[in-house]
Write a protein that binds this DNA or RNA. Structure first.
Lengths: 136, 136
DNA sequence: CTGTATCCCCTATGATACTG
DNA sequence: CAGTATCATAGGGGATACAG
């Protein structure tokens, strides 16, 4: 817990040092968080953490994602180095997506949050209900 | 790492079981992730993980946040149960924000990702540069 | 000091149709 | 099968002014 506190202060100081010439743009945390907080990113990361998937497989696995967002989310994850895209010259061509080492490493880190969410989301929902009820 | 894989599959299965009647809305992970992925949420959580802050203090600590977003982000964090808001009847009134136990617990979980980001954001940036350069 | 109320813009997401 | 292109929409976020 002391580690938490000291770390938090240092992070803020680093952020403040960059305000004015970059600010959040240079923030390590936002660099990472911004591109994995999309609507479908976590879901696709979880799928690929299990095993490699082809494009169409992912589409069927996540039935309510639009083709556009599947393409775009995968591309963003690939751009950040989390996902590897391999094209196989079958006919018609097939494309396989898989986690890179960097992606797996990041997944191991974000997994703590996923796990927390599974254990505590009811408390969060309850807090929302209570907050909304308290509004006059 | 077997834990990772098995867990990921179960999470996807839980998600798929809800597609059609709720889907992402009932997803524990999105319930949590959606409201801490805002532009300023992580920064404010880190500040409050250090110590309680007054509204004006936070404003000076994070000079480039608009008053509107400071108010709104704090309110969202409070609504989810992460932040406690206390009004002191001074003149003029002052308001103090602090982490709740739930907030501190969540912070401990998300901290792993923050730590990863600090250690690996250069690799992510490098991956982006490489990806962009490969575009014709 | 700590907010609320407007107005405005930009980006993320979605629906649909088309292509190698 | 695995995408692109185009158009439309909603919400996040900022600037500014006002209020208790």
């Amino acid at each position: 817990m002391d580690t938490t506190v000291v770390s938090a202060r240092r992070r803020i100081e680093i952020y403040r040092a960059n305000v004015g010439n970059g600010g959040l743009d240079n923030c390590p945390i936002r660099t990472v968080v911004q591109n994995i907080s999309g609507k479908w990113s976590a879901l696709l990361l979880m799928a690929l953490a299990e095993r490699p998937y082809r494009f169409g497989e992912l589409r069927r696995l996540v039935p309510d994602i639009s083709q556009r967002m599947l393409t775009q989310t995968l591309r963003d994850l690939q751009r950040d180095g989390y996902v590897r895209r391999e094209v196989f010259p079958t006919k018609p061509p097939s494309v396989e997506y898989s986690l890179t080492d960097l992606g797996r490493s990041m997944y191991d880190a974000i997994q703590h949050l996923f796990h927390w969410a599974e254990n505590n989301h009811q408390q969060v929902r309850a807090a929302r209900v209570e907050f909304d009820a308290a509004e006059d």
